[in-house]
Amino acid sequence: MLKVLAACGNGMGSSLIIKMKIEKVLKDMGLDCEVHHASVGQAKSDARNFDLVLVSHMLVNEFSNVGKAKIIGLINLLSEQEIRDKVEAALKS
């Protein structure tokens, strides 16, 4: 099962909205996954427990020492197409 974390600098409410978008995209892709959400502060300490972490492209540099986690920076956090494209690319690499 793919473990995914959605993080947003604006707080838990906005990361919940992003989480719902990610869940929809991953379900449409047929992936077995578990999606969580957190503030960036919390996500920085929890990232190592996930396979993918999706954040604003402006926050990617906030994440270091995240073990196996792949950090995906999104320009438009609500774009299902961008989420799909970047998740596919991350899973291929």
Rank of each mutant, 00 (worst) to 15 (best):
I22T: 08
D46S: 15
S79H: 05
A69I: 04
K3H: 14
V35W: 08
A47F: 09
S15C: 02
K27Y: 13
H37L: 11
L26I: 07
V87F: 08
D32P: 13
D85A: 11
K92Q: 12
N76D: 08
G13W: 05
I18M: 11
K86S: 06
M1H: 13
K24M: 04
K24Y: 06
V66K: 01
L77M: 09
I71L: 04
K92R: 13
L16A: 06
R48Y: 07
L77Q: 03
A90W: 06
A89K: 09
A47H: 07
S15T: 10
I83P: 02
N49C: 10
E88C: 02
L5M: 14
K86P: 03
H57S: 12
E88T: 05
L77A: 03
L77F: 00
V55S: 04
I75A: 01
R84T: 01
V25C: 12
I18F: 03
G67R: 04
V60R: 10
N10Q: 07
D28W: 04
G9I: 09
R48W: 06
G13L: 08
S93C: 00
A6R: 00
L26R: 08
I18E: 05
G9S: 09
V25T: 13
N76R: 05
N10Y: 07
K19L: 06
A69Y: 05
V60H: 05
G67Q: 00
I71H: 04
Q42K: 15
K68T: 02
N65I: 00
L26M: 14
K86M: 06
V87W: 07
L74C: 02
L26H: 05
S14Y: 01
V55Q: 04
E82S: 00
M29P: 14
L78I: 10
A47K: 06
K19Q: 15
I17P: 00
S45G: 15
E88Y: 02
V55R: 02
I71Y: 02
R84A: 11
H36A: 15
K92H: 03
S64H: 02
A6T: 15
I72C: 01
S56R: 08
L59N: 13
S15M: 01
C33D: 10
L5G: 12
I72Q: 00
C33G: 09
L26D: 07
V55L: 08
V35H: 09
K24Q: 15
L91S: 04
